[in-house]
């Protein structure tokens, strides 16, 4: 069974004359363990799709199944709990908490899981080590380079061992060398730890790291290719 399954997803903003169709009926199934690159020009609907998959946004019509859960029937709290328990997010702008150490940033999702201080500390240290930041746990955002900040963000996303990692242009703010390192880290997490990755990107170079590429245009999927 697919990890996630979108059927006939439509998203419409505004009403009447001002109506804008962001998604005009999306069908998409992603298997557990897959690595999917979502591509397409600005306004093609890829970000909206990511927000819907990430349970941050709700579709106007259609159904979204995450494992056995019909997400479109969940309320705000239900979606928050689904994010907490099964999803990890990596953003283009890193989005670390200011004036907060790397360790505390990575611990944050565990805090919301109500984990004991000693347990969550150990687990966060482990996640930081996994992204190659062992020894930098006390650095704050200002003391880390862009690539390191994104590694902290990835550690924060995977510390809860999520079923699905959603990355929204994770290399958008990084140079090509740093970008490649981040992509290799994501591939490693996907292959060695079996975390399903869905990544939005503009850059074909980055998309080439993924096994499957989905191309969006005008609110529709126009190309869906699984590479050997």
């Amino acid at each position: 069974m697919a990890l996630i399954e979108l059927q006939g997803i439509r998203k419409v903003y505004g009403q009447g004359e001002a109506e804008v169709v962001a998604l005009a009926g999306i069908d998409l199934a992603i298997e557990a363990g897959d690595f999917v690159a979502v591509m397409g020009p600005s306004g093609s609907g890829k970000s909206t799709t990511m927000n819907i998959i990430g349970c941050l946004d709700t579709p106007t019509a259609g159904t979204y199944r995450f494992r056995d859960t019909e997400v479109t029937t969940l309320d705000r709290n239900g979606r928050a709990l689904l994010r907490r328990n099964h999803l990890g997010f990596v953003f283009q702008g890193f989005n670390l908490l200011k004036r907060t150490s790397a360790l505390e940033n990575v611990e944050l999702p565990l805090v919301y899981r109500g984990m004991k201080v000693s347990d969550r500390r150990a687990q966060a240290m482990d996640a930081l080590a996994r992204v190659g930041l062992a020894g930098r746990e006390n650095h704050t955002q200002a003391e880390l380079s862009g690539g390191q900040q994104q590694r902290v963000a990835i550690a924060r996303a995977i510390v809860t061992q999520p079923a699905l990692l959603l990355a929204d242009e994770p290399t958008g703010n990084l140079d090509s060398e740093r970008s490649r390192e981040i992509m290799e880290l994501l591939v490693d997490l996907n292959q060695a730890h079996g975390i399903t990755v869905v990544m939005v990107t503009h850059e074909p170079d980055m998309a080439d790291f993924a096994r499957r590429q989905v191309l969006f245009k005008d609110g529709r999927i126009v190309h869906d290719e699984v590479r050997s």
Binding site: L56, R76, N77, A80, L81, R84, N85, F89, N95
Partner: peptide, 16 residues
């Protein structure tokens, strides 16, 4: 606001 966004994204409940 951004901090609140991060907290909500990683699964903070409204009441938290």
């Amino acid at each position: 606001t951004r901090e609140i966004g991060i907290r909500l994204a990683i699964g903070a409940l409204e009441r938290e």
